[in-house]
Nucleic acid binder design. Sequence first.
DNA 1: GCCGTTTTCGGCCCGACTGTTTTCAGTCG
Length: 583
Amino acid sequence: MPPYTGWIAADLPDNRAIAEAFQLLGDLLQLEGADRHRVLAYHRAATRAREEARPLAELALQGRATEVADIGTTLQAKIVELAETGRIAALETARERTPEGLVEVAGLRGLGPKRAMAAHETLGVASLRDLGAALHDGRLADVPGFGKGTIESIGEQLAERAMRAAAPGGERIPLGRGLLIARRLSRELAEAPGVISVDIAGSLRRGRESAHDVDLVASEEHPGAAAAALGASPGSVGDDGVTHARAQAGDGTWVELIAGPAESHGNRLQHATGSAAHNVRLRERAVRLGLSVSQHGIVDADGVRHVHADEAGVYRALGLPDIPPELREDRGEIEAALRDELPQLVRLEDLRGDVHIHTDWSDGRDSLEDMVVAARARGYAYVAISDHSPRLRMARGLDERRLRAQWEAIADVRERHPDITILRACEVDIVAEGLDFEDDVLAELDFVTASLHSGFALSGRELTERVLRAIRSPHVDSIGHPTGRMLGKRDAAPLDIGAIAEAAATTGTALEINGQLNRLDLDADNARTALDAGATLILSSDAHSVMGLDFVENSVLVARRAGAPPDRILNATADLGGRLLAP
DNA sequence: GCCGTTTTCGGCCCGACTGTTTTCAGTCG
């Protein structure tokens, strides 16, 4: 069977549809007060379906969906039912019993299944709209469990939702900006009196694309030192000296801090890094070992609490190797760790060069020589000067005449900096006719990155064809920011990543993980697809200034989330995959 | 409903916080 490419037979439900059905069924059962473990089973299966790369409907029809964790024979049968009849009877009857609109009601902060159902049973509330009406009439106060504070909070949330509906905006913090804030705050905090060390935790540490707040973990000499430095009052101080604090940074970002003694720093860091699902799995395993895990330490069967100064100690106590944060998503990493099969993930220090950078010859801010010096200072063995091709007028793309002039400038800089290999390169546009330079020009370049910068109105099929043509060009070494997405501005082009990854694997063309804050393209899921297909990745900063070279750190984070080892990263090789040896 | 280096049945994470309560259930991460 060919690898899954995202396009499957039109009459089968895709994994997203399966996930939605299980999610809703779980939500409705939860409202009805079903056994919470049964509810959890549906929600877990929904998460699994969302993340599974293979088409579950096909698997289920072959009787193989139970190979996927959290999917047993009952859920497999429901997937088959959905595939064959287009519906799941259990879901339809649950919908008849319980209004679907209550799911949203239960989703409000401070509400949950119990209070949502109380409102339904007392006042007949079946939707957010009903809830708003009951609020205005003053009837909500009649519902058991609805006090003054809860009702006030509901009012605020409904008003907020109405505002957001009028002006939608992402309230989650994108990874790049989140990391900048987190690094600044943790640096400042670490220098405060009484604070010993600070680590970034939460989804930022795991490299998720966005976070809802910044999580920090500190060790301190006395309770409250770190919270005070953050300008927050510590909440309650536990008998082991652990405090929680919450504060708002200057730009409105919420920061959550857990601080305590250095000897239990590892327990707090492990706890606050998550993910929630990973921690649940970890604690389940601990229970089987007769242990109880929390942010305060690990309690053994005799009730004795053990603390750990570093995270590795926590995992060691559970019989596991230190699992990299980027893998802690309950996607089988604990099982892999038990089998000693965790991938060796690429690290920033594995990178030997950056082959996608711009200078002031096109739309970069710094000079060619400044960029080379900065690359050298980072310890790179090579750097590729890859300014834009002529079609990108607004970026002052180079035509052939200016490109050749740049080669002379490169020759000059090479003489002054013999300790780094400077490649003649180009980020050439992928255009309707093929590429934005003739083959004879491309053949003279040391490295060619081909990128989509236009044509995003075309169909996924047409754009995929364009990219495939670029991949098959013997002159193209890598595909830059393959899907062309701009976070918050433009969605990823609907490319057939499976087909692109397969072609790239065949030709040896690298697929880029672009580290620009608004790109992060490929994303971790697509990068994993590329790796599964056998393709090589390349990690690039796409720097437009000396400072911009740092963006490659974001690429590394995304690559690690995808499970990429250094030997699958083109610019982690000393000779750039043999290209530096060519005459 | 899932799952098994103690189990094919009987378990299935932990603690903080909140607001509503008269001692704690529900919610959150």
